[in-house]
Amino acid sequence: QEPLTASMLASAPLQEQKQMLGERLYPLIHAMHPALAGKITGMLLEIDNSELLHMLESPESLHTKVEEAVAVLQAHQAKDISPK
């Protein structure tokens, strides 16, 4: 797969753009967190596209954001489990 560029993305309809970004992000996130990959990718897709493109180019920034998403998910799930 050739790297996704801003111009490639810009030429796609908005809905397709998120799909394209998700298809590229998912395998990278899956390598880090297989069990949560779908959820984390969904959370990241809410970030604006320019930042997502940057993350595709910078493994470090992607890694930071994925860890943040895992922390948010764990805190969220902890809230669900905690006795009310």
């Binding site: 998700g22 969904g42 809410e46 998403a69 948010v72």
Partner: peptide, 18 residues
């Protein structure tokens, strides 16, 4: 630092229309 990520976000499934 409060994260802006949404834990309720829709799950992404590769190959499925997002």
């Amino acid at each position: 630092r409060k994260s802006s990520l949404n834990p309720e976000a829709k799950e992404f499934v590769p190959g499925v229309k997002y």
